[in-house]
């Protein structure tokens, strides 16, 4: 079996989704951890150092290319799979199985992913892009992201948009976390229970921490 056959099969396509999904989950841990420095109570000093480590250092900057590659792969493969799966039933049911058989968010990964994608377009153009433009896409001078956050999150609609983005991320992770591990072949019932528990905890804690960031700025907590 050639690599082409592997990655064009239905399981191979899902393996790509699973592995890139876990990779993006790992990235979220780093992202939420570094951003949590805004709550250090030092008016953004620690946060700025963390942001400088990520943006002003070649190692994370090279890894960033891998992050975008993984993200793009997850998005493109996700859409291709969604459209392909939808095409397998030309005539639908008059009465659907619906929530009796599965959770709504497990059936709505494409929709939730699309909301996250739209959120990401806004999010990247709010912070990442202006910073990289300022750096000339190399290692030039960075903008003060802490001040930028304070400005961005002084607008209520921006805060609401970010909270909605985080809510979509939460539901996406509630299914995606455990589904990714099932897809890459974890079949031991003991681990499945463990992974679903960790998955739900991750899906609540991480998006909640992210959502609290704009809320904290808006309410003047930082």
């Amino acid at each position: 079996m050639t690599w082409k056959q592997v990655f064009t099969s239905s399981v191979g396509k899902k393996l790509v989704m699973g592995f890139t999904g876990i990779f993006l989950i790992l990235f979220l841990i780093i992202h939420v951890g570094l951003n949590a420095c805004i709550w250090a109570g030092d008016n953004g000093v620690m946060f700025t150092q963390a942001a400088h480590f990520m943006g002003g250092n070649w190692v994370p900057r090279v890894l960033e290319i891998g992050l975008f590659a993984g993200l793009l792969l997850h998005i493109i493969q996700g859409y291709m799979l969604s459209f392909s799966n939808q095409s397998k039933r030309s005539q639908g049911y008059a009465v659907d199985f619906g929530n009796r058989g599965s959770k709504w968010y497990s059936r709505s990964m494409g929709l939730l992913g699309t909301i996250i994608l739209l959120f990401l377009v806004v999010h990247i153009s709010d912070f990442w892009l202006p910073n990289r433009v300022s750096q000339g896409f190399l290692l030039g001078p960075e903008i003060n992201l802490f001040d930028k956050m304070r400005v961005e999150f002084s607008e209520l609609w921006v805060v609401i948009l970010y909270v909605l983005g985080c809510l979509s991320l939460g539901y996406h992770l509630a299914h995606g976390f455990q589904s990714a591990f099932r897809t890459i072949g974890v079949h031991n019932k003991k681990y499945n229970t463990l992974l679903s528990t960790i998955g739900y905890a991750f899906a609540i804690i991480v998006p909640l921490a992210f959502a609290m960031m704009p809320v904290s700025f808006y309410l003047g907590w930082v």
Partner: peptide, 14 residues
């Protein structure tokens, strides 16, 4: 022409 699995669990329930 069957689709790919997205682990929704509807199959197990049915």
């Amino acid at each position: 022409g069957f689709g790919a699995c997205t682990n929704t669990g509807a199959c197990e329930a049915a």
